[in-house]
Amino acid sequence: MTTIHPTAIVHPDAELAENVCIGAYSVIGAHVRIGARTQIGAHVVIDGHTEIGEDNHIFQFASLGAIPQDKKYRGEPTRLIIGDRNTIREFTTFNLGTVTGIGETRIGNDNWIMAYVHLAHDCVVGDHTIFANNASLAGHVTIGNHVILGGFSLVHQFCIIGDHAMTAFAAGVHKDVPPYVMAAGYRAEPAGLNSEGMRRRGFTAEQIANVKNIYKILYRQGLSYENAKARVCQLASSAPELKAFADFFARSERGIIR
């Protein structure tokens, strides 16, 4: 049974699936679709062409689907799409996409988004990520699966962060971060591998060693970026855990943190 608090304002054209819960004083716009068993806390505003999947928990004071902070935006019906089983904490702000980008902002499944996180227009976030408090993405950022962003991390527009990568507290990401790499510093630099995260996710010692070899090629052998990239792409088919590097370099255009 769907439950809507008497003080909430839900537009009659909004689509709510079964067992959705809308908290006190929340506002749900006309073009919003919310999947089954999703819980919306108090004082949440969900607007725009926003689609939210099943079993999400959105805490109080979140703002989802507001227009992008882009002066070129002219009211186009761009979208925000949120998957399933996400935890979205207090004071988070997720914006719609833009027609000059991909037209939508996308968040996958099973993500843990902490308080005050900002996702700007046209960002794409994968699955099983953790964004600590006050992490912020500028527009057009792509975040892979199993990525962890430390508190107050800032990611420059158009950057890509690869699968299983991690940023330290207050990292300033100005270029792309390869898969499995830890990034630290105001102008982020490589700080080793996210080996502990890999172990927790069941990677074997051999798999971790394979990734360490890639890290050495990228950062320890003195190769030029293009030569290191070519060598890594050549090795990417030799083991399943290395495929993430081929996918990453196929999309990376800004160069990687050095």
Score class of each variant (00 low, 15 high):
residue 87 T to M: 15
residue 257 I to F: 00
residue 243 K to A: 12
residue 230 A to K: 14
residue 57 H to V: 15
residue 111 N to Y: 09
residue 221 Q to C: 04
residue 62 A to M: 08
residue 241 E to K: 00
residue 155 V to K: 13
residue 153 S to G: 04
residue 216 K to Q: 09
residue 75 G to S: 09
residue 4 I to L: 09
residue 222 G to E: 05
residue 117 V to G: 00
residue 50 T to A: 07
residue 62 A to N: 10
residue 175 K to S: 07
residue 14 A to R: 05
residue 2 T to P: 00
residue 174 H to E: 10
residue 92 T to E: 11
residue 190 P to V: 02
residue 40 I to P: 02
residue 27 V to R: 10
residue 211 V to A: 13
residue 98 T to V: 12
residue 136 S to F: 02
residue 105 T to W: 13
residue 98 T to M: 12
residue 209 A to C: 03
residue 24 A to E: 14
residue 79 R to A: 14
residue 63 S to G: 05
residue 227 N to S: 12
residue 244 A to K: 09
residue 180 Y to D: 05
residue 176 D to A: 13
residue 227 N to C: 01
residue 42 A to S: 14
residue 42 A to E: 15
residue 131 F to V: 06
residue 228 A to W: 06
residue 39 Q to I: 13
residue 244 A to P: 09
residue 236 A to N: 04
residue 159 C to W: 01
residue 247 D to N: 14
residue 89 R to N: 08
residue 111 N to K: 03
residue 75 G to M: 07
residue 117 V to S: 00
residue 216 K to G: 15
residue 248 F to I: 08
residue 228 A to E: 04
residue 120 A to F: 03
residue 66 A to N: 07
residue 191 A to Y: 15
residue 90 E to V: 02
residue 160 I to W: 11
residue 80 L to I: 11
residue 201 R to W: 06
residue 196 E to M: 02
residue 83 G to D: 07
residue 122 D to V: 00
residue 122 D to K: 04
residue 118 H to K: 02
residue 154 L to C: 05
residue 45 V to R: 10
residue 253 E to S: 15
residue 219 Y to C: 09
residue 4 I to F: 02
residue 22 I to D: 06
residue 23 G to W: 09
residue 36 A to Y: 05
residue 127 D to P: 01
residue 67 I to F: 02
residue 75 G to F: 04
residue 16 L to M: 08
residue 117 V to F: 11
residue 245 F to C: 08
residue 55 D to R: 13
residue 175 K to R: 13
residue 9 I to E: 10
residue 15 E to S: 12
residue 256 I to P: 01
residue 78 T to Y: 04
residue 220 R to A: 11
residue 61 F to P: 01
residue 103 G to W: 13
residue 37 R to L: 07
residue 163 D to C: 08
residue 61 F to C: 08
residue 145 N to T: 13
residue 14 A to Q: 10
residue 235 L to C: 03
residue 223 L to K: 14
residue 240 P to D: 10
residue 185 G to W: 01
residue 69 Q to G: 10
residue 190 P to T: 02
residue 101 G to V: 09
residue 96 L to N: 04
residue 105 T to S: 12
residue 22 I to G: 05
residue 24 A to N: 01
residue 21 C to W: 01
residue 151 G to C: 12
residue 231 R to K: 15
residue 128 H to L: 11
residue 232 V to R: 00
residue 156 H to V: 07
residue 138 A to C: 09
residue 52 I to Y: 06
residue 150 G to P: 03
residue 217 I to N: 00
residue 212 K to D: 14
residue 14 A to L: 04
residue 55 D to C: 03
residue 59 F to V: 04
residue 93 T to F: 01
residue 241 E to W: 01
residue 226 E to L: 13
residue 91 F to R: 04
residue 207 Q to D: 12
residue 242 L to I: 10
residue 181 V to G: 07
residue 129 T to W: 06
residue 147 V to S: 06
residue 194 N to W: 00
residue 174 H to V: 14
residue 58 I to T: 04
residue 200 R to Y: 06
residue 33 R to Q: 15
